[in-house]
Design a protein around this nucleic acid. Structure first.
Ligand code: FES
Ligand code: FES
Lengths: 155, 155
DNA sequence: GTCAACTCGGACAGGACGGGTCCGTGGCAC
DNA sequence: GTGCCACGGACCCGTCCTGTCCGAGTTGAC
């Protein structure tokens, strides 16, 4: 999985509840990561419709929806792609004892198991929203942490 | 995820209940895949202790345990590795407002969510065994399918 | 209205990792 | 002894991730 997922998720958390747009350079300095590369991740988020960018002076990025309506799965799929990790290549149809096409109407049982596991993974990620993450941060690191971060971003 | 997982899983299914060892070349011909690459996957399975190889003439591979005691997760981890997909790089400790070390005793909430999803995925894979897969194949493709496959491998 | 500065957006290289292949070595049965 | 087979490592190649760059467009100020 792409390492940029962590950056995108952290960006979404600090962006939650920030009314003013935040430039990508500020976000990069805040997290101490490469500005150019983080810009690419933000582009992916923008293309997926999770964040909206306003150009010009005093422009930047902001969430398009309330944080409670953005799930972790949305961010992960936007950055890392939405294709499943396991890809069935229909091995059963090859070889000397290949299964005839009339027996391949249903997916292979192995593919079904893999697909079920993938669905469980996605369901677990869909159950958590950005708002949940922000609340958790306030609970573990103190409520003032997020406020100070947003204030620093506005400067 | 590595595409060889599909091959290894199919190999384990056809190997289940086969008393005689099966050479790697036969398995490759049966699935119509590259013999060299499948050999590498079988080596990984052997290193993980799932299959045992007998050398010399009329040698080959065979399962070490009953099929009901080998889970799909065992095969996936043997071939694809057991490290989680998401790797936390502790972004919160960097930047101008870095979290102090005394607040980083517990993992980041984002990392916790990712870890929970990964655990759900693994749990879903651990619930299915090779014997279950073999039974499913017999139910959908007819009970004689596996028997014919094993007979072909013995030739 | 004009200018300038600041922003995003996509196009462009470098490098690391995994897929895929090959051959030499050692061990077992015949 | 001889032939067959698994094992381990070294090797090349394609692909994806990482990282960077500069141009188009927009905004705010003067
Ligand atoms: S044919 Fe693809 S998983 Fe069985
Ligand atoms: S610091 Fe790694 S996920 Fe938050």
């Amino acid at each position: 999985m792409s390492g940029g997922v962590e950056w995108g998720l952290h960006c979404c958390v600090v962006l939650s509840g920030s009314g003013e747009p935040v430039p990508a350079a500020k976000l990069a300095e805040f997290h101490d990561v490469s500005p150019s590369y983080l810009a690419k991740q933000l582009q992916l988020l923008s293309r997926a419709g999770l964040v909206r960018s306003t150009q010009g002076q005093s422009g930047g990025y902001g969430l398009t929806r309330p944080p409670a309506e953005i799930t972790v799965l949305d961010v992960v799929e936007a950055i890392d792609g939405s294709r499943p990790a396991f890809r069935c290549t229909e091995v059963r149809r090859r070889g000397p004892l290949a299964a005839p096409p009339e027996k391949c109407l249903t997916p292979c049982s192995i593919a079904r198991v893999m697909d079920a596991a993938d669905r469980a993974w996605r369901e677990s990620l869909r159950a958590v929203t950005i708002a949940d993450l922000a609340g958790e941060v306030g609970r573990t690191s103190g409520p003032e942490t997020l406020a100070r971060a947003r204030a620093w971003l506005q400067t």
